[in-house]
Design a protein around this nucleic acid. Sequence first.
DNA 1: TTGCGTGCAAAGGTTTTGCATGGCA
DNA 2: TGCCATGCAAAACCTTTGCACGCAA
Lengths: 141, 141
Amino acid sequence: MKQNGSYKTKQKEKILQYLTSHPSKHITAQEISMHMNAEGTPIGTATIYRYLDQLVTDGTIRKYTIDSRTGACFEYLPHTDKKACERHFHLKCMQCERLYHVTCEHLCELELHILEHHGFQIDQSKTVLYGICETCRNHKN
Amino acid sequence: MKQNGSYKTKQKEKILQYLTSHPSKHITAQEISMHMNAEGTPIGTATIYRYLDQLVTDGTIRKYTIDSRTGACFEYLPHTDKKACERHFHLKCMQCERLYHVTCEHLCELELHILEHHGFQIDQSKTVLYGICETCRNHKN
DNA sequence: TTGCGTGCAAAGGTTTTGCATGGCA
DNA sequence: TGCCATGCAAAACCTTTGCACGCAA
């Protein structure tokens, strides 16, 4: 019987603290590494990746890749109340990095449609729609 | 005055031909390489990446990165008309990790609705809907 | 003590770069 | 003939893995 994440360590605490103190922000493994070096408490790369993997698995953070050149990004999901986020979708602005919570019947219809016509059951808590928000589009050019 | 892509070569022709013959399909640089090997006309990795970069820049193909583990994917955009609703969304099964491509007017309507009523312009290339696919739900205990 | 966690180094993979050669115009 | 394009190899990356040691419980 293998149980991951059963031990509490200083490394995990520091990494999670860094992630939670920057909610809705893109953070790479490299940034975490450099931050820890700057703090005088370096953490091995392997440890960082292993712990990030655990956090992704248990849903604490989300992993995505905008560009393969810069590598994967990780982002803390600030909603502790998972139920509160069950009934709405998330819109993430790629420019200002703000996260919008949208509750809309269109989205519920969409979910139903995809389930009925495409056989796919969407997990709203894991799904983020990426794009550009109104504010950023207005400020453009 | 530097001008990229000013020369027409056999390598470029073969790569573009392969991409256009598989519209709406995700193709990795590695797949192109292997395909060319199988065809008896191998093309250097660097050449493939350099040309793909050009095609992304001029908008002929689109670059996706669903998973940093497998690297970037490229996809031919069959329609130059941007307002055509022929693009598609991605459904990623969290269980079998398969990626589904869905072209559906409901999704296009959704995109339009979110733009008009929520002021948010979705970037389909970055957006992945997570959930469980039909096959995995049927196989569930 | 038990067994997970950590760090180091090495390996594995994708993508980029330098440089000489090849090929289009 | 000019250059850009190509190919090879090496480099530069990000990420994973193996192994011995450290540390939480």
